[in-house]
Simulated assay, not measured.
Amino acid sequence: MCKLSLFFFKGCFSNISAFMYRLLFLLFLCLLFVATGAESSHTNNWAVLISTSRFWFNYRHAANVLGIYRSVKRLGIPDSQIILMVADDYACNSRNLFPGTVFDNADRDMDLYGEDIEIDYKGYEVTVEAFVRLLTERVSENTPASKRLLTNEHSNILVYMTGHGGDGFIKFQDADELSSEDFADALEQMHQHKRYNEILFMVDTCQANSLYKKIYSPNIVAIGSSEIGTSSYSHHADSDIGVAVIDRFTFSNLEFLENRVDIKSKLTIQDLIDSYDPKEIRSTPGVQSTYTQKGLDEILITDFFGNVRDIELHSEPTKWILPDEQNDTFPNYSDSSFVSHSPSGLTKPMNRKNKGKSVPLRLHYCTFSEFCSATFFLFILILPFCLQFAFKMRR
């Protein structure tokens, strides 16, 4: 009888132990699902900004794209990860009363051109073919890195376009057209070749909303300035320059970005859309999303207009070198063990393994949610052992 009772107890304990390990496995899967669902695989940001128009009377389109260019740089995306395409050189146009400048406001308090600008495609380089090849990486092997979109499956990409368009197309320099079907197919090629994580597509043109209707690839939000059959309007003109200097839809976006968004902002795409006033824009903006697991109120503005911080913490004093320095002479930056930011143009501390190479720096944060997840995970791991110990003590 005692042997039978002991056998029964061992069998019950074995069943309980097996059950607990099954429960541990299920809880681990749930935790893994929650963690992967909550954390984005987004690790880098890129922007493709393009004005497709030529001729002086389209000055506002250059101002549109340069205004967006200024905003994404202010929020942290470096020129090395921005592809800027401008089809005409308005700053050097003979009609420009203010040579070497481009303004997006009649008060002319901010020169968008200035000295800190890098245009990657200009003049007749801005074509439909060049744009599609850029997106799909079907470029010549001799194409410099500055003219290539070097993205991967962890890249969030902002694509902004402005110019003249119609139902299902946008014109390039009044000579060619990019159709909504061709654009959608280019995005699908990017998806098939794992060239993006998420894309925000914004377009400011007449009948802009028709340009994203054919998009079928996942994780893309598209925002257009005007419905099919309606126009997109300029905001105001500068009497000295003699033409309109910005469009209403882009003006609304820049007003939101410049006045309400910084690198730590928690504002979402939905907040941006809610800020649109059709009476002020004089057209009806539209939006389309191909996300399946995210709502627009869960997608941060800074996921596209900002940049993943590229900083690392060091526990010891560090020495820095310029990227082009190949000798053993190091400037001394050892006044602090906490490196919150690196001096402009500097790379990770050099050693024998990475001498002369630029190595990305990254700041590793531990948020409250990550701390709770880690604690919960550790609790699940030790729970079966605690229960086994309790059963042994009862024996």
Rank of each mutant, 00 (worst) to 15 (best):
Y59T: 07
A390K: 13
P360F: 01
L26C: 06
S51I: 04
S140D: 15
F103C: 07
S210A: 01
S265E: 05
H235S: 03
V102N: 09
P343M: 06
S369M: 08
I321V: 12
S40G: 11
D79S: 09
I119W: 09
N105C: 04
L187D: 04
E137Q: 14
K171A: 14
G166D: 13
R195L: 15
M190T: 00
G76D: 05
G242Y: 06
F103A: 07
C366T: 15
A38F: 12
H164F: 08
L211P: 00
G100M: 13
E129T: 10
K264S: 14
L6S: 14
C386V: 15
I281Y: 02
D204A: 08
I117P: 03
L363Y: 09
K266F: 05
P99R: 00
Y113V: 00
E258I: 08
Y212L: 00
P78S: 11
N253Y: 01
V339S: 12
V221E: 13
R22A: 12
A184W: 12
L383D: 02
D324A: 06
K294Y: 14
L26P: 00
S5W: 08
Y233W: 04
F249R: 03
F13G: 02
G242I: 01
Y90L: 08
T318G: 14
K73M: 07
I228W: 00
Y90Q: 08
G229F: 09
K279G: 04
M20P: 05
L313K: 10
Y59D: 06
L26H: 07
F379C: 11
R309Y: 10
A390M: 09
E181S: 11
